[in-house]
């Protein structure tokens, strides 16, 4: 885990260096252009990021027990149970209909 964190830190430092190099000329432009350019640079810099967790190290993450929602019907059903009785809604990843008025 320590090795993964060190690799991740090195990748993030690499991306930060890329961004610092181009930040100065961009600062003179409008904020919207700066934000757009920044977002583009982050995406491009991503290509140079070396994945700190290699594909062959993802066996644990690929284990079904690491899935957020292993059973879609059950997850959607429980969301409906809560949505019909609480004031809160959303950000749980399911979309559907129904009233639950009674």
């Amino acid at each position: 885990m320590r090795a993964s964190l060190l690799t991740m830190r090195a990748s993030l430092l690499n991306m930060r260096a890329c961004l610092l190099t181009v930040r100065a000329p961009l600062m003179k432009r409008a904020p919207l252009k700066l934000a757009t350019a920044g977002a583009g640079l982050v995406l491009l810099a991503g290509c140079s990021i070396q994945p700190w967790v290699k594909p062959y190290e993802r066996d644990r993450l690929a284990d079904p027990i690491m899935s957020w929602d292993r059973d879609a019907i059950s997850a959607a059903y429980m969301d409906h149970v809560y949505d019909s009785r609480e004031g809160s809604r959303g950000a749980t990843g399911t979309a559907g209909g129904g009233c639950g008025c009674n």
Partner: peptide, 29 residues
């Protein structure tokens, strides 16, 4: 892309949903 129809005697709902999901940064994100 999904379409959902929910029908009760007293409530009818039609829902259309579209989403996209993009892997990036070496599939870490």
């Amino acid at each position: 892309l999904s379409y959902t129809n929910s029908t009760e005697r007293d409530y009818i709902s039609n829902t259309t949903h579209f989403s996209l999901s993009q892997d990036m940064f070496g599939d870490l994100t």
